[in-house]
Design a protein around this nucleic acid. Structure first.
Lengths: 340, 340
DNA sequence: ACTGGCACTCGTTACAGTCGAGTGCCAGGA
DNA sequence: TCCTGGCACTCGACTGTAACGAGTGCCAGT
């Protein structure tokens, strides 16, 4: 059980070397590249203990050692030192994000930036509707029996839906509907709208009742149930970095997982606020992603969190660097959002 | 030069066999699996000619033959028979597309459907703004100096942009701006708006002039220059089908190309109307896609074309089947759009 | 508690040999 | 003239063997 300082140092050295060389690391190489102050034989003894405890393993009998998921976990929790961003990286972040023109633009730039800086697959969740408030609802007549409903949230998100009315509704009535809906809902948190919408249907003058009823249905669907979350993805080509060694030879399961919004949301959807979350290997719940790690965090204007972002890569990844980058990008995006 | 009927039949047989088995096909196997009515030796002579003409080649001296890009081209142009969709496929298409609730939904369902049916990477271009008309422009005040501009196109697309006004504009003025802008632009084709916007700025009452000027800038940017085209993608996991044999061992270049919207647009952006376009191997202009083929076509309500869709896969693909599917899906989507 | 030394394991590489699919070519026949 | 059977040849795929070497575990010595 007892892992003295040197054993921890050995584990750290193994992780660092393996991450950078991608090859199992042996005892001799270790003492050469790090100042451990002991001989290879001693290191071997330490390694035997580390292996017994499940922190490292040998791919085959006569090979060096490789960290296990558990080893990475220990490394991340206790051994990694914060790696400050290089000035070049800071500059890249700033340069990349100025000039963003609307929310879509911000999200797209962010996700590309993250992919580029970390050289991994980047995922950015649009500001969650659940955490947004209604800024304005617009009703645009398409024909006498059709409306386009446009919802603008305070986070900048815009959602639209076609509303098929039960019968023709004159322009004046549409005007009234718009006013009523906005009076009641503007400023409300999305998550609090259902009772308000319900109340609306009941309060509305009887001639507007049928139209309002269908409108309410669509509203609830749009605001609460459907779509809800959107996601942007970039850098899938980075999966091919490191040949086929990572991901045990097949990108198939990874690519499949990346196509599922639900999966991505679970991965980067923020849970505890403002912490950076690291999921290593089989710590995440999806079989397809057993060979991958995810580093994610929440972002938002000021202290509030409106969405998550993160990256996905091989378990053999540069955790300190990636964590630093993810955090930095999240902070910058938050500042950017605060300006709007 | 002269390719008699039998030689063409041989080529067709080679393509069909290679597509289904993924292995170089030899003369004996050919006569066994197809009723060519001649001996292997004869087929070998024909093969020699086909090879000389560049339609097939041998991976190595003692192997069977494999079609070249040129061979596929000839096959697609002259040898493939139309493959009718199976009833199951027809049903899948219908089932998949009913219940789509707005444009985003239509596009997403379509792209997933295409990927699923063809088992390849599917790409769907949103209805091109260039081919859309303005249905309505909405101005939503965010603060006294900020507006959210929302443009709704007749194709269902909705674009939004934040407008930073040069100074505070009272609500009444916003109201006027909205009316003016809609009077002038509603119904106009997007491509025809620039002069109209220009005229607007000049005609507007002087107290609205500064606001209208910035608004005009943003309008032009939104309507004509920026974003312009959007794209949906699905089925990247299908790239891993067929092991690493397709795409000469590395998905890297393919994945990189798929991340570039510009590339995708060039590939599936429709050129001549209503034709199905097939780009085989190096016929397309991107080095990264030398090992891939693209089947694409335009779609739109009725006879007009508003966007493109298609699939990307290995040159060794089932062209007749893929072409049939792409066409069918495009037709259904067109019908769906016509209903709105 | 650490170290040098040593036997051992086992994946990697190189090389030789066999097998067999597939070819090109030629001489003979319809 | 065109097709066919036959035959020698090529060359990749596979198999078996041997040498190599990185790395280990263990033990005796300091």
């Amino acid at each position: 059980m007892g892992l003295d300082d040197r054993k921890l140092a050995v584990l750290r050295a193994i992780v660092e070397d393996y991450v950078s060389t991608q090859e199992p690391v042996g005892s001799r190489a270790l003492v050469e590249r790090h100042q451990l102050g002991v001989s290879p034989a001693t290191v071997r003894n330490d390694m035997a203990v580390l292996e017994e405890e499940g922190y490292i393993r040998q791919p085959h009998t006569s090979a060096g050692r490789v960290p296990t998921d558990r080893g990475y976990r220990l490394f991340v929790d206790r051994l990694s030192r914060v790696k400050p961003l290089s000035p070049a990286e800071r500059r890249a972040i700033e340069r990349f994000l100025v000039g963003a023109v609307d929310l879509d633009d911000v999200v797209h730039r962010t996700v590309r930036l993250l992919a580029q800086l970390t050289r991994q697959v980047a995922v950015v969740q649009y500001p969650s509707l659940a955490r947004s408030s209604v800024r304005h609802l617009e009703l645009v007549p398409i024909s006498t029996t059709r409306l386009m409903l446009v919802m603008i949230a305070d986070t900048g998100r815009v959602e639209q839906r076609l509303v098929e009315l039960p019968g023709p509704v004159p322009a004046d009535d549409v005007f009234d509907l718009r006013r009523l809906v906005n009076e009641k809902l503007a400023g409300a948190r999305l998550s609090e709208t259902p009772p308000l919408v319900q109340a609306l249907v009941e309060e509305v003058p009887s001639e507007l009742r049928p139209a309002m009823t269908t409108l309410a249905t669509v509203l609830l669907e749009t605001l609460v149930e459907r779509h809800e979350e959107r996601i942007a993805l970039a850098g899938t080509a980075n999966l091919t970095r490191g040949g086929l060694l990572d991901f045990q030879g097949s990108l198939r399961p990874i690519l499949e997982a990346l196509e599922e919004e639900v999966v991505l949301l679970k991965l980067i959807g923020e849970t505890e606020p403002s912490t950076t979350r690291v999921l290593i290997g089989d710590e995440n719940e999806f079989d397809n992603l057993r060979a991958a790690s995810v580093v994610s965090t929440g972002y938002g204007p000021g202290a509030t969190i409106v969405g998550g972002l993160g990256v996905l890569g091989p378990t053999r990844m540069d955790y300190p660097g990636t964590i630093a980058t993810v955090r930095a990008v999240a902070r910058y995006v938050g500042e950017l959002l605060a300006q709007n």
